[in-house]
Design a protein around this nucleic acid. Structure first.
Lengths: 133, 133
DNA sequence: CAGCATCCATTCTGATACTG
DNA sequence: CAGTATCAGAATGGATGCTG
């Protein structure tokens, strides 16, 4: 079985009402690859976290971006949001089944990036030094 | 072998000079997930294409974005750019070995997105209808 | 044919201040 | 504790006209 998706596959999935720029596959991918989405998905892949815990885990995310990214991930069905009516209130975030099923493929790519970022970095330096920047 | 990369792995890879927001892994991922990058990488995974061919293949990309995205992919070492000094000139783009090696993991994720975009779409609708939008 | 330069609109991101 | 609201700057995206 070939795991490759051809461009024709994607074109077929678009059926006219969608243009290339907003094909559904790409829309899904964009949701996963926001500036903080991948990091949050991986964190929640380990265990559920509370809002404040995530904030401390990602020291350089602003509160605004954390709230917004979590909301987007919840909207796409990757994570759940559970409010405990304690005093003061606490909110727990965790992966849904859909989110868990996505973490496999995403992990593959993260692993590739982790294994190859030095090569990418080297390529960038070569390109820039060659004056093509 | 567990293919998962933990957050601790990423934190370890950062070594202080990098913050979460610009960790090298994320930088690589961002390069792959620009608005058009994935589509172009997949197209070039089938065979090399010329500039004009790519333009026709992605009808709704602007010339500016095509040029820019190709240049970014070349800079990161995923594609090569070969100029034929014909008259009029023609330019061929194709995947490098690094690009080819990345297409595997990327394809996994594209396949997941292709298999699950209806679920994501359904989740979005539920969220919006529930008035949480 | 395969670009580059310019201009403009939209989106994204973060800092800051405030609330149930 | 876990947000919301507002604002300003940066980055991104696209339309148009010009060139070797």
């Amino acid at each position: 079985m070939d795991a490759r998706i051809t461009l024709e596959d994607q074109l077929r999935a678009m059926q006219g009402e969608h243009a290339m720029g907003n094909c559904p596959v790409r829309q899904v991918m964009q949701g996963i690859f926001g500036k903080w989405s991948t990091l949050l998905l991986q964190a929640l892949g380990e265990r559920p976290y509370r809002f404040g815990e995530l904030r401390r885990l990602l020291p350089d995310i602003s509160q605004r971006m954390l709230t917004q990214t979590l909301r987007d991930l919840e909207r796409d069905g990757y994570i759940y949001r559970k409010v405990y009516a304690t005093k003061p209130p606490s909110v727990e975030y965790g992966l849904t089944d859909l989110g868990k099923s996505m973490l496999g493929p995403l992990g593959e790519l993260v692993r590739w990036a982790s294994d190859n970022f030095t090569q990418v970095d080297a390529a960038r330096k070569r390109f820039d030094i060659a004056g093509k920047a």
